[in-house]
Design a binder for these strands. Structure first.
Lengths: 241, 241
DNA sequence: GATGTAGACAACTCTAATACAAGTGACCCC
DNA sequence: GGGGTCACTTGTATTAGAGTTGTCTACATC
């Protein structure tokens, strides 16, 4: 198979970005050109690829630096946001803020069909910067064996050991509430993305309900609206009264 | 029973494609020609068969590469929020707020590749209540024949009469700006859903750039996230009753 | 007529090399 | 502090060569 040089270089650089933090300045195009033994044009091609991916950015007269934001979430792949971050070379962290068994709020009980739940509230960080407050409700009997330490170290989906089918996610906007504002280090009542996810197992039974709060500007969802059979109309909006 | 050489070669290549990933570049026609001991024309026949099957594609001057997900299909109705509203018995309305040809802002020019654009700002209403401010940028030459009345009565997708392939949509949260707040009749700087959509035609050329501003609380996106077989379900947004 | 070979040319891509414009930051000088 | 200079950076445009696909014609073989 043939190899395209600037793609190779982009791959190599992508690997290096993993090692350095947000805001770090890359060597100049001229230096990289010398190091790789290619022309400046080729280096630029590689860097522009990374720019399109949102990994780096440049200022004329200054240089190329590692871009931090925004964290983009691809909607079509199911899975943890952390997984997506890791694939991009960002180090995810979780801090458990609250962890307790308690009676389910009404709207949660309606979905999960249980009265007693394990509720976990976590703060997610990307490279040390908070980017999401996640609250997960899980039927008490499913979460019985879980410890605070467990949920800090691994995502819920792994811990439960269930065969999951998929999820329904609702995305809206909101003003952040006081507690979350503090955790996310954003001004009070600033705008946030508010997502609610209901995860079901292979039998179709809802097993998890989660709420995600993302500060605006730090997170965006990206959706590919594809060409599909007209029967299953893919795109849509729901109005809420 | 004679064996058709270029079909043999197509079979052989089809097997190899399985091993390499999407986007991989094949050896040049000349190289393959040498390897198989046949002429370039025969290699091309084989490759063109694979292209018809959607397995590979080629760019002049670049080479043959493994195609991702092919299928060019017409997409009759996508992204028309109005259509969904009508199906639910809600009467949609459009008010054109601004309509003019002007130089493209930088970020629009970068996407559309034109310096002059038609910009249309519309207020969408459902049963008389405003629920979205939509701004559409369209290359000036494409929008030349459009009148203010046109865009008031019918969606852009119909008016252009192009074969559209799909769109990439980015969803985020934001604070509403002053003008939009007035239009939507919400308090200043209240949270909104902010969507940006880039629509491409079947050739992959971006032909429209649109921005949607939805007041929080009145609108939500609902998404189905499949876990298995990403090909089975269309990714994207779906209307849920 | 379908299939395969051979060759030629146009159009495009990638990479290199070079040049210049324009922005940034550090330093010096007044 | 203000202003100017200078080295260094990215942004953008050229030119050129080698290599690639796109397309065509001519001819041989089954």
């Amino acid at each position: 198979m043939r190899t395209i040089r600037y793609q190779q270089i982009a791959d190599e650089l992508r690997g290096r970005l993993r090692a350095v933090g947000v805001g770090a300045v890359l060597p100049s195009e001229a230096e990289l050109s010398g190091e790789f033994g290619v022309s400046r044009v080729t280096i630029r091609r590689a860097l522009e690829i990374l720019r399109d991916e949102g990994l780096v950015d440049a200022r004329q007269g200054f240089g190329w630096y590692v871009a931090g934001e925004p964290v983009r979430q691809h909607l079509d792949e199911f899975g943890t946001i952390e997984g997506q971050l890791e694939r991009r070379g960002i180090k995810p962290e979780r801090q458990v803020v609250e962890f307790d068994f308690r009676p389910a709020p009404r709207r949660v009980a309606e979905v999960l069909g249980t009265s007693q739940v394990l509720r976990v509230k976590r703060l997610n960080l990307a490279d040390g910067q908070p980017f999401a407050v996640v609250t997960v409700w899980c039927p008490a009997e499913l979460g019985q064996h879980l410890s605070r330490r467990d949920v800090e170290q691994r995502p819920f989906y792994e811990l439960l050991g269930l065969d999951l089918r998929g999820a329904t996610q609702t995305i809206g906007a909101d003003s952040v509430d006081g507690a979350d504002a503090k955790l996310l280090r954003v001004p009070p009542s600033s705008p946030v993305l508010h997502c609610q996810r209901i995860t079901t197992d292979t039998t179709g039974r809802p097993v998890l309900m989660s709420e995600f709060v993302f500060p605006a500007g730090r997170t965006e969802f990206v959706v590919e609206l594809p060409t599909a059979e007209p029967s299953a109309l893919p795109s849509g909006l729901r109005l809420v009264e």
